[in-house]
Design a binder for these strands. Structure first.
Lengths: 272, 272
DNA sequence: CGGATCATTGATCATAGTCAAACCGCGTGG
DNA sequence: CCACGCGGTTTGACTATGATCAATGATCCG
């Protein structure tokens, strides 16, 4: 499991030649990926709230941990509407360096084809077992014609993805390691929590290894570990083997460098 | 000029307390910003190619260098369709650290409201004199109802923004300083060049200071300067006072860590 | 129970940041 | 037309954040 997003030589050229570095195969092959997708028979009813197209159910698929929904370099023939579970959206550099650019939660739409029709530059992999509604482009086009409501929702959802990406980019580009990790945990906590309104549990399972946190924050897993230790020592958050416990929300917000006002608003509305 | 995106104490907390750092006003006030927008009388005909709504012209506005199209914290009432010029889309942290998350070129759509209706977390500022079509949300909603073609183009454009953001994020999170700068210059060169098809001029004006390049790449302007010196010394690119000259495209692609295949495709299609 | 994955810790190094000073290009006004 | 000044660039000396390399431990799961 987690095959595709597993370690490997995290080669990092030091401004020097790239060529003498051992390269990681662009697409680590793993058994699971070659299996056919499983159509879904019975679904948890709650997933309906996350559908982009409420009447379209024939595209539902269940996929196991580690499965790629789509891969770098493919040309999108369908879009993927996540109904349950977690998905990592990621990019790769030639030499195997990896960046997780987004953690998709239920409601997310992934793989929308771009205006210039180019190959897709990122991939998406299930971090947990997931249920996805796979919507063929042809279907989407048709629905967009008939239902302006869907158009608007799709555009808004895509705009939100961009906005989240911008915030994430800011984190990576301008925050310190400690701030980045705090920001990510806060983001995941609030986004996840927004899906169970009224649920103020301060402990949750985040299906991520420290290496994946590193890939999302632009850090090495070793450094992520050190940062997490200090956050634990400072009694702010406790993250250990995928279990996250927020010990001091206020200080977490402070360390993350998030305006408290904004942070509070995160705790209100549903957010993909 | 460039008021809003001008230096200032680029305070950078070193994991230590943030509080004893001098703070930059969140919104440096400058005269230009308070002026009213100028409606446009005569436009260069070519701008039409970049319109999201071909028949909607009453929203056209011309704005000078340094003007904010919209600002962090506003609630979007209109979207902005750039027709000519360059715009920097940026975010700010509390203490003044800044990240430029996108350089918008003609054809771009900015300020699309998100699904959760939250305040917009980024701002947009003109880097050159620009012409923008300001489209009120109400107009957009109406057009989306009547014209599914527009819906599809809007969605594709937004998807492309996300894709560019993901690539940019990868650069900041996983590339070295040298690679990041090379990547950005390559990206700007190809995107800009795609707008004048057939124009293979290897010299162009990029309306950016080294500080702005730093803000886009997550580096300090001092380090950007050093990197640019080495790129110049290595006869790869020459960037000096806003003039960019590509000396060795192949090596630039190599340093940027872009797959040559992909790089070539960038030289083909129009791309916002 | 045992192997694999994931986490932790230490020692050392390098990339990029910080601080500071000087320089250059260009527009402006005397 | 030249001096001035401001924004932008360049360079140097020093520091520090986070990477690298390496070894050991903990946890999970079949």
């Amino acid at each position: 499991m987690f095959q595709g997003l597993t370690a490997q030589e995290a080669a990092r050229p030091s401004g020097g030649p790239l060529d003498d570095l051992s390269r990681r195969p662009k697409r680590p092959k793993d058994g699971a990926d070659s299996e056919a997708w499983a159509p879904v028979i019975g679904l948890p009813p709650s997933t309906d709230a996350y559908r982009l197209l409420p009447r379209f159910r024939t595209g539902d698929r269940r996929m196991p941990v580690g499965r790629d929904l789509f891969r770098i370099g493919e040309t999108s023939k369908s879009i993927f509407n996540l109904l349950s579970g977690w998905v990592a959206v990621y990019t790769l550099l030639e030499d195997g360096r990896r960046q997780i650019v987004h953690f998709a939660l239920p409601g997310a739409v992934m793989g929308m084809p771009t205006s210039n029709g180019a190959k897709i530059s990122y991939g998406a992999q299930a971090l947990t077992e997931v249920v996805v509604s796979v919507i063929p482009n042809t279907v989407l086009t048709t629905v967009l014609k008939d239902d302006p409501e869907v158009s608007m929702r799709l555009a808004s959802t895509l705009a939100r993805d961009t906005s989240i990406a911008y915030d994430h980019m800011t984190s990576i580009g301008r925050r310190t390691a400690r701030e980045r990790v705090a920001y990510l945990l806060l983001e995941l906590f609030t986004r996840h929590r927004a899906q169970w309104p009224g649920n103020s549990i301060e402990e949750m399972v985040i299906p991520l290894t420290q290496e994946q946190i590193g890939d999302a924050t632009g850090l090495t897993f070793v450094h992520v570990n050190r940062v997490l230790s200090t956050l634990r020592k400072d009694k702010i958050v406790h993250f250990h083997y995928r279990r996250l416990r927020i010990l001091d929300p206020d200080r977490l917000i402070e360390v993350a460098g998030v305006d408290p006002q904004t942070a509070m608003s995160w705790f209100e509305r549903r957010s993909t």
